[in-house]
Design a protein around this nucleic acid. Structure first.
Lengths: 244, 244
DNA sequence: CGGGACATTGATTAAGATCAATTTAAGTGG
DNA sequence: CCACTTAAATTGATCTTAATCAATGTCCCG
């Protein structure tokens, strides 16, 4: 189990530095009641919640009550369609905003399930909208956060539509590596918090294929993988695989 | 070439009726300067633009100047990644809002190319933000429009990640059929405005495979396809293929 | 220390890609 | 208007990739 202390180098998707301190948090306009005259000394810090491994932060069909800002840990976002097909659309880590897909209809359209004990800031949606009403900067920030998810989804779309399994795995690992780096962890060595099955589903392939691609990459000295422990040995080669 | 007269049954993604008349257009809060005292008699109607077949409405890398509300015709949205891979992420038709992916960074991240001569309402982004600043309802509407695109992308993600080629094609045709219906056209008979190559790219398969799946479906009396002209003969069977 | 979920590896099959050859239709310029 | 050109679509034969089926190994946790 991980410690729950937020990293000191969490980033917003759009590259604004964050910290664990509400007073200097870049989401403060969204998060805190902005009708306070003085934004520099905001009202009560928001509630947080620990989500234990395997627990759902929200589920498809739940009404939109809160958005969640993921402060530490990691999560899988799983969309289910009418036919019961499941697709893991993302593996957010610290710094990600969760629940934005519910804004269209007011109902969550996916499950968010903790891959490890994780910590989120709870942003009650009505408060947040209240802030956006008062504070145009906050409203713009929210717009950008939502639009960010469009581009995330499109990135994966590109992988599933155009790449071989090997390229997809490389792309996936580069993505994790960059998120680790953005959070101040080693981009070369990390623990995969998700199962092979989760990776396979996310990348539109089968468990066995994920294993085999890992094995081949290990043989080629691109990486060293043992169970969930992964070390990237040749990140340039990995990049080359997924980016031409 | 198609006529450019907007359909009388255009819908917003989130199911609000639209018409060709600005005075009763459901986007009027977003579109027209809302600092007018009286919303019922808005200021000048917005400029429109005809985009000819093959022309780009915007291209990846263009700065975000305008959003566009597609009034008639159809478009392909093509995302290109660093490696030069191309993925057609959507085929919007009348009623769709175009350009929302640019909101994250202020730069378009995809090309929007007309599949036929098409008509758009031009929504200058700064005016639109101005309206959102003044009019909270407009701001919420914009949020929902952006969030809509997330869910669209996830739908395709599900198809590419979990479905066979046959299921993907069925899913694709059902989607077109529903959009045709929403716009007041026949859901059973329509003209495919895009090439087989475009369909193939969109669905993560090859041209030949698209042809073969069409041929098989025709043999099974699910549809009748000749070049771009398509008739769905058994929509229930098609639905069953893509939805379990 | 034993049970169960997760991961790995091998053998075989099948879906879809690739390669190759026509066919069809839509423009275009004389 | 018609011959010519070219892009798009179709069909067949073969090959490759990844799925499937099956067995075994490994680790985590009670």
């Amino acid at each position: 189990m991980e410690t729950l202390s937020p990293s000191s180098a969490i980033r917003l998707p759009f590259q604004v530095q964050a910290t664990s301190d509400c007073a200097v948090c870049p989401l403060t306009r969204l998060c805190h009641a902005s009708h306070d005259a003085d934004l520099a000394s905001p009202s009560m810090p928001r509630a947080r919640r620990i989500v234990h491994q395997g627990e759902a932060l929200y589920r498809a069909g739940d009404p939109l009550q809160n958005l969640y800002w993921l402060r530490s840990g990691s999560v899988k976002i799983r969309a289910t369609n009418a036919a019961g097909l499941e697709q893991i659309t993302a593996f957010p880590v610290a710094g990600a905003m969760l629940g934005l897909d519910a804004i269209e209809s007011g109902t969550h359209t996916s499950d968010a399930i903790a891959l490890e004990d994780s910590l989120v800031c709870i942003l009650p949606f009505c408060d947040l909208m209240g802030n956006c009403r008062q504070d145009f900067i906050a409203a713009q920030q929210l717009n950008r956060l939502i639009a960010h998810d469009i581009n995330e989804a499109r990135g994966l779309l590109m992988a599933l539509g155009c790449m071989t399994t090997e390229e997809r795995v490389a792309h996936f690992l580069i993505g994790i590596s960059e998120k680790m780096m953005a959070n101040g962890y080693s981009p070369r060595e990390f623990i995969l918090k998700m199962t092979r099955q989760d990776i396979a589903n996310h990348l539109g392939m089968k468990v066995e294929t994920v294993c085999r691609v890992f094995a081949r990459m290990q043989d080629a000295s691109l990486l060293s993988v043992r169970r969930r422990q992964l070390e990237i040995r040749n990140i340039d080669a990995l990049r080359k695989i997924c980016c031409g």
